[in-house]
Design a protein around this nucleic acid. Structure first.
Lengths: 247, 247
DNA sequence: CAGTGGTCTAGACCACATC
DNA sequence: ATGTGGTCTAGACCACTGG
């Protein structure tokens, strides 16, 4: 049960990173569900045959990656998108210009099954033509449409995804992924551009055709950098902006 | 010399955070310059009268904030913008669409002294009308203009900033701030919008007037969250995009 | 070789949450 | 009172750098 020694000649991998890897494997295997506590540090230390301090470093690394949340006095919990309180804006960078924190209302426009276009297939590591499901939705802030999202996921991972299931779900879409399909979103990469609105987006967002929109292309990943979602958001920036912190 | 005990009743502040605070004070006081090593962990431990492990946690926290860089076997160094190798893209999120890493060439268009507009004064914590210096420059990628930057700094902090000084400096503008004015940029906040190009930006960026541009508004901060620069970048996204990682 | 940061351990104690 | 994570210590040893 004890992990391999650290004295291996060519590639040195510290013990706590090996432990971290083992813990990630357990997360991937859904050993512990989102929102649930993982075993205590002491328990894991005896289980792996290392000191508590080493387990601690491993868990610290997991927490730094946002895979897990530490709560003093309570335990360490698997990160989840289903809790309303914390990290509501973890993957939502759109803010109102006036600074008020508002969580948008989602309006589902369309759900359809289709084949992956090349542009989508590559980032999702699919073959062109593989079956996908596309959701189209509008985010309203204070009743005003602000964002038009086209969300594409591989049909194979999301069997049984229907319009009804999306509409009756409360919470973010990643919360839906998590609870209904066991797909846990862990990180994302976004590319932003300014584009002119076309006919479809203009009417849905109630702007003039050709008006500048902020285009946000996102690929999201689960554990082990496996891509599971591609989306393009088109955002009016009359009353909103995209907020980013650099350090 | 030893920091206050941790047993204070109302607000508990761990020892390592107190040490971190002291180290930041030393950084603010320019005790150690950018790129220079700070004293070793052992040295600091004896100086502060704590264990090496506690100093280690303090430095770890500084490193997590990018105030300092650890280098095994060599020491811990004050973060700098003057090194070409690492963190060249730390505050530059614009990338080529084709994925090639290219560092843009900067072309200075204008340097002028003026008074702070309200829009600029508030984020810089100045009064409207306070003296400021405005730089205008264009970033070229492969000879093609891609970004138009208007950079505003308080004149009081940047005495002696002239066109010549900017032009003869090699390296990023934050490297100039650091070496010539002792101003160390530590973090930044950006707000992105899509806007139509006006006459001036259109000619400088060689796009049609009204073409969509990515507007990046940035406020940068030194230690203690003191704002020192406001800028607006206008970026063509024909061949480029703004890259962001979420986690 | 000596000096630096990096890892690992073992144990004591503190802060917080829950029963 | 108990169990959790959080802090602090002291010491041993490892990996990396440079003279």
């Amino acid at each position: 049960m004890a992990p391999s020694t650290q004295h291996s000649a060519p590639a040195f991998r510290p013990l706590y990173l090996q432990i971290k890897g083992l813990l990630i494997k357990n997360l991937e295997a859904a050993e512990w569900g989102p929102g649930e506590p993982i075993p205590s540090e002491i328990e894991l230390a005896t289980r792996f045959g290392v000191s508590q301090g080493t387990v601690r470093k491993a868990i610290d690394a997991l927490a730094a990656d946002n895979l897990v949340i530490r709560r003093q006095g309570k335990g360490t919990f698997v990160a989840t998108h289903t809790e309303e309180k914390i990290s509501m804006f973890r993957f939502l960078r759109i803010r109102r210009n006036d600074g008020r924190d508002e969580y948008p209302a989602s309006r589902l426009v369309d759900v359809r099954r289709g084949k992956a276009a090349a542009e989508v297939a590559r980032p999702l590591e699919l073959k062109t033509g593989d079956p996908v499901i596309t959701l189209r939705r509008v985010l309203d802030y204070g009743g005003e449409p602000a964002v038009l999202d086209d969300i594409v996921v591989p049909a194979q991972l999301f069997k049984g995804l229907t319009r009804a299931k999306v509409e009756c779900h409360r919470g973010s879409i990643y919360s839906l992924f998590e609870t209904e399909f066991g797909v846990r979103i862990v990180r994302a990469q976004e590319r932003l551009r300014a584009v002119p609105s076309d006919q479809g987006s203009a009417t849905l967002l109630r702007v003039a055709p050709g008006a500048p929109l902020l285009a946000v292309e996102r690929v999201t990943y689960t554990y082990s950098d496996k891509p599971v979602e591609w989306r393009r958001g088109l955002c009016t920036t009359r009353h909103h902006h995209y907020l980013n912190e650099l350090s």
